[in-house]
Design a protein around this nucleic acid. Structure first.
Length: 813
DNA sequence: GTAAACGGTATTTTT
DNA sequence: TACCGTTTAC
């Protein structure tokens, strides 16, 4: 054996449980590993690879397919510890297909330098296809058509078949667009994400010799997260495991959360039928979580019908109860979670990286972000706006794409007038028509601009000028990426353009992003001294997901969606907004299978937690602008109260204390726990006396005002009505309340009744105060009831600070 | 042709 | 609220 360092057989299998060792030592023949959360699955997979190598399997005969780059990186790192330097192929499905397609490009009608359209690219392409197909978007949206076509591709349905099938279904429109869209992609020498799988699956199906070749070459295929495979992926894996059916899949039906993307749970549920001689191993012991957390998760998931029943257990010591927490609203949720994190850190047994906050939708991270930032807590958002999606980055990448693939029409349209060079929509439209008529790429049309009669002389000049710039850039295509990018930025005067047009916002600095992209290029050059091509760089960029951006080396609180959380673990976990219409999501409630998927989503969230976990919901939450009452998620009723602590919302006397706690300048320094009291509203904030007029809605609740006191309510078998009813809440039983229920008046209107709505105050607004007279708002911070303004009055009074919800202010216009 | 201003509308999750 | 497409004013 070529590597002396590799551990002995015993050390590979020692420290493994029987079940784990069973899986690790199974080499030939199909293998199904049902792996519960935290059951050491990655350990098994990596040890199995090491074991196979040890037994003489050649590294290039093994391919391990994952869904995320992060999972692949993790696997690579850990295999490398066990068997250093072995060239086992590990990577995502999409990357695998992309690489194979490079080799066999011509067999599916592509060129080897084909481009991968990202979502926004395919969106533009889709719009163009819809227009070309002559379809009015009055009754459908491009998104719906996209999604129908995407689903078709995931199920390996060709345009022809879709047209035949769509007799009665509402997919007829999509079926008409589909062939047009595919043709345009092919003409642009491009594929979308689905095509990577679709083309490759069809390639295998239609070319037996290619199939046999790959089957023989990759004798041992492993698939991670098998429960998330769709039909295309299933077909690919199957096709490569006919002559050498040494297919090992790992997964957990209870963690299947990608049904909406075409994942078919039957792939894993029926695996044993597909491969009769399969060896099945169940990993049910959990090494990650406390028994309490596991019990809650297990009880929840037992409500699903479509699953393979598992008996999850752990030998970990007992931990704290899972907390079920109610908040008044999303802002309080955000603030108090941030406070809780601060408190736990101050208590000294946690640091930022220990915490993760999960939510159903990206939009929900905003208030959390705000609250964390206010307290100076370091955090990272794992989704937000992906770096590669930002305008300035996309602009430059589009240039690179066009340089690499002159047929990339989407890139051309993005770039031809960026920076602006006098080529407007009309001109672009005419180029497009000419291109369509002659079945040529738009760049080709641009080269032949003088043949296009409809173009004005001026337009022809402008277009030619662009082509000249393009050709100049193209000459640099083989330079290092860094050189190419720098040259590009310089030649197009891109930075000047950004500075001229860019509106620099607080957390958005376009020029810095340009620099960051250049850094990424430098890094790529460094990592690929030999094989570094523009092609490879663009492929790499296209296939990294936002979830891969997660850095556990950063000592930061992590904010992400539940989907992004899969495969990760954190000591302390918050799942926020466990509310009806959100989790389960409104659009998933009608269908049982989708509802079960939502339940799995929460299951995934809870099982990420190692020692501490809180689920929360609010009584009301603002949804795109206005505030609406909330019904807690039905899933909360399914949780066992024995392992939980239920906490009702703290009454909103919180408006007057906890808000303005002082936090350390830097979290390196840990301070004593702040002892906020009702009277202590913190420095710099002035509250008007008695904010409650006769018509006020709020009254102080019965809770103690010391925020460090935690209320532990007795457990209950179901969520008591009190959580969303008025019985013990600070909302008075008044006409105002019934209006909430009837939806006639929003809570924010109630809060602001008889006052100027908070969102009308702007920096620079002139306001009148009964005592101080007129002043100008110099700054605004905070949200909702906590929105605070600094107001500059006359010389005598100077600057004063007010909580807008309570101050007796009037807007002067 | 460009840019700002307006108004309508959608709103999940992501390789 | 935020984005997008459209209109409007230069």
């Amino acid at each position: 054996m070529g590597w002396g360092i590799l551990c002995s057989m015993e050390s590979i299998t020692k420290n493994l449980t029987d079940a784990q060792a069973d899986a690790v030592t199974h080499i030939d023949g199909p293998l199904l590993i049902i792996a519960g959360p935290g059951s050491g699955k990655t350990r098994v997979v990596t040890h199995r690879i090491a074991h196979m190598l040890h037994q003489g399997v050649r590294p290039y005969q093994i391919a391990a397919l994952t869904f995320t780059n992060k999972a692949a990186d993790e696997m690579r790192m850990r295999v490398n510890l066990l068997a250093p330097g072995q060239p086992v192929w590990m990577g995502t499905f999409h990357r695998f297909c992309a690489q194979q397609l490079r080799r066999y490009a011509s067999m599916v009608g592509l060129n080897e330098n084909y481009s991968i359209y990202d979502m926004s690219d395919s969106k533009s392409a889709m719009k163009r296809a819809i227009a070309a197909a002559g379809i009015a978007t009055s009754h459908t949206s491009p998104e719906q058509i996209s999604s129908a076509i995407s689903k078709a591709k995931n199920r390996l349905i060709t345009p022809e078949i879709m047209q035949q099938q769509s007799g009665r279904a509402g997919d007829t429109v999509a079926a008409r667009v589909y062939p047009v869209y595919q043709q345009q992609l092919l003409l642009a020498n491009a594929v979308d994400f689905d095509d990577l799988l679709y083309h490759f699956a069809r390639l295998l199906r239609e070319n037996p010799e290619v199939r046999a070749e790959l089957d023989a070459k990759l004798k041992y295929i492993m698939v991670d997260e098998y429960q998330d495979t769709n039909l295309a992926q299933y077909a690919i894996v199957r096709a490569m495991s006919v002559d050498h059916p040494n297919l090992a899949v790992t997964g957990d039906p209870d963690q299947s959360i990608y049904g909406w993307r075409g994942a078919d749970l039957n792939n894993i549920l029926d695996f044993e039928k597909d491969y009769p001689n399969v060896k099945t191993v169940r990993l049910e012991q959990n090494y990650r979580s406390t028994p309490n957390i596991l019990a809650v998760a297990d009880q929840l998931i037992r409500h699903n019908r479509r699953r393979k029943a598992k008996e999850l257990f752990t030998e970990n010591p007992d931990g704290e109860n899972v907390i079920l927490r109610q908040y008044e609203d999303g802002y309080q949720e955000a603030d108090e979670i941030a406070d809780e994190i601060a408190a736990q850190m101050i208590a000294g047994n946690a640091e930022p990286r220990d915490f993760a906050i999960f939510c159903r939708m990206n939009a929900l991270t905003r208030s959390l972000e705000h609250a964390l930032r206010n307290r100076g807590l370091p955090y990272q958002i794992v989704n937000g706006q992906e770096f590669y999606q930002r305008k300035e980055v996309k602009d430059l990448l589009s240039y690179l794409h066009l340089i690499n693939n002159p047929a990339h029409d989407v890139a051309l349209q993005r770039v031809i007038n960026t920076p602006t060079r006098g080529i407007g929509a009309t001109t672009i439209g005419r180029l497009q028509s000419f291109a369509d008529a002659n079945r040529i790429p738009m760049l080709e049309a641009a080269r032949r601009a003088n043949e296009i009669d409809s173009l004005s002389k001026r337009a022809v000049t402008m277009v030619s000028r662009f082509v000249t710039i393009y050709d100049r850039l193209r000459k640099k295509a083989t330079a290092s990426l860094e050189d190419l990018l720098r040259y590009l930025v310089e030649e197009t005067h891109y930075v000047a353009y950004l500075e001229k047009t860019g509106i620099e916002k607080e957390d958005h600095n376009p020029v810095a992003n340009v620099d960051e992209l250049i850094s990424a290029a430098v890094e790529f050059d460094r990592m690929h001294p030999d094989d570094g091509s523009l092609d490879a760089f663009l492929e790499q960029v296209a296939l990294v997901a936002d979830t891969d951006a997660f850095e556990d080396s950063n000592n930061r609180v992590t904010l992400m969606t539940l989907h992004a959380a899969k495969g990760l673990e954190f000591p302390r976990v918050f799942v926020i907004a466990v509310e009806d219409d959100l989790l389960p999501h409104r659009r998933s409630k009608e269908d049982d299978q989708q509802l079960e998927e939502e339940r799995r989503l929460l299951f995934v969230g809870i099982t990420r937690a190692k020692q501490w976990c809180q689920l929360s919901y609010a009584k009301r939450r603002s949804v795109r602008g206005d505030i609406r009452p909330v019904i807690p998620s039905m899933f909360l009723n399914e949780l066992p109260r024995a392992d939980m602590t239920v906490q009702e919302a703290r009454a909103d006397n919180d408006f007057f204390d906890a808000v303005d706690q002082e936090y350390p300048e830097s979290w390196d320094i840990i301070q004593e726990e702040p002892d906020g009291t009702a009277a202590d509203s913190g420095p710099g904030v002035q509250l008007d006396a008695d904010p409650f007029g006769p018509d006020e809605v709020f009254e102080p609740g019965p809770e103690p005002s010391n925020p460090s006191t935690v209320d532990r309510l007795p457990s209950a078998s179901v969520i008591p009505d009190v959580y969303f009813d008025d019985a013990e809440t600070p909302v008075k039983k008044s006409k105002a309340k019934s209006k909430i229920k009837a939806g006639l008046q929003t809570a924010s209107e109630m809060l602001d009744s008889g006052r100027t709505p908070l969102n009308l105050y702007r920096e620079g607004s002139t306001v009148r105060h009964p005592e101080y007279g007129e002043g100008t708002i110099t700054s605004l911070v905070g949200r909702g009831p906590k929105k605070t303004a600094k107001i500059q009055f006359g010389e005598e009074t100077g600057e004063q600070t007010f909580r807008l919800a309570f101050a007796k202010l009037e807007l002067v216009d």
